[in-house]
Design a protein around this nucleic acid. Structure first.
Lengths: 145, 145
DNA sequence: GTAATCCCGAGTGATTAAGTCAGGATTAAG
DNA sequence: CTTAATCCTGACTTAATCACTCGGGATTAC
């Protein structure tokens, strides 16, 4: 029941972008340095955020990424799903399983499906209820350094 | 954001035990057959359930496992935590990380910690709100065989 | 033109997950 | 007492996934 490093980094990076909102594009190099994340790993995550319409990009020198919408309109669920795909606590709830072999080997095995659906829905609710501006306002601790 | 097969199997197996509650021990062989789960894999999961005090065991011929408490007193969260350890969506929330190197490379990185804590708490809440008897009552489909 | 940047696909090494195997300990039944 | 059924344990294997790297191409400010 763990999120991937992609998600963790993706959210942190988006928070950095949010802090810089309205100030033009920010390069991956700066984000990587600021959050101590591998630049090349970030380079692999951002295309997903772009394809999901969460960030825009400017190519070439002085280019970078910027939030496609204001921070109060981007929530964590958007980011998580963009970099990790839809939330599915068990395989049989995965989107790409629709129409395939039933998840339950025996008819009665679907007893448990309900729990996982409920779990998935609550997870989405929590993630969708927090927006980028929630992360950057009232920081729990002052900036170090 | 996926549960392991251990958890999925563990919960299914526990549901089978719940159906058999009060009728004496049920052998792993029967559970495995009933749920089409590898017997040897189950054999690896049940010690964890026993150590967590969720099931009792009877050794020797005609032995097996039985619920240590009635189905309405065992919830899914108990099972999940027993076979997979405490819920921790990100590494820095893991129990064994207490006192170790701070999760956040920069002080301000803890901006995101709050979300993950909230997520963890909600996941636990959902899992703790469903009990074994909820799984076996009003089954969506009748038992096969 | 050059350097800075995004962009893309393939490759790699380490870790974890899922499942197997072999054998020992315990006990009911005959 | 013997046998077969069962739990119990630890090591092993194999496959998948993850986190990250690498090499190079396209675009653009200066």
């Amino acid at each position: 029941m763990k999120l991937s490093a992609r998600v963790e980094y993706g959210v942190r990076a988006m928070a950095v972008l949010a802090l810089h909102d309205g100030l033009g594009p920010l390069s991956l190099k700066e984000i990587a340095k600021s959050e101590k994340i591998s630049y090349q790993f970030l380079e692999q995550i951002f295309p997903d955020l772009r394809k999901a319409g969460l960030v825009g990009s400017v190519r070439g020198a002085r280019g970078g990424y910027y939030l496609a919408r204001p921070p109060e309109q981007i929530n964590i669920g958007d980011i998580v799903r963009a970099v990790e795909g839809p939330i599915a606590p068990v395989d049989c709830l995965a989107d790409d399983n629709a129409g395939r072999e039933p998840c339950c080997h025996r008819g009665e095995a679907c007893r448990t499906r309900h729990v996982w659906e409920k779990l998935r829905d609550r997870i989405n609710e929590v993630l969708d209820s927090v927006y980028l501006n929630d992360l950057i306002e009232s920081k729990p601790e002052p900036l170090v350094k």
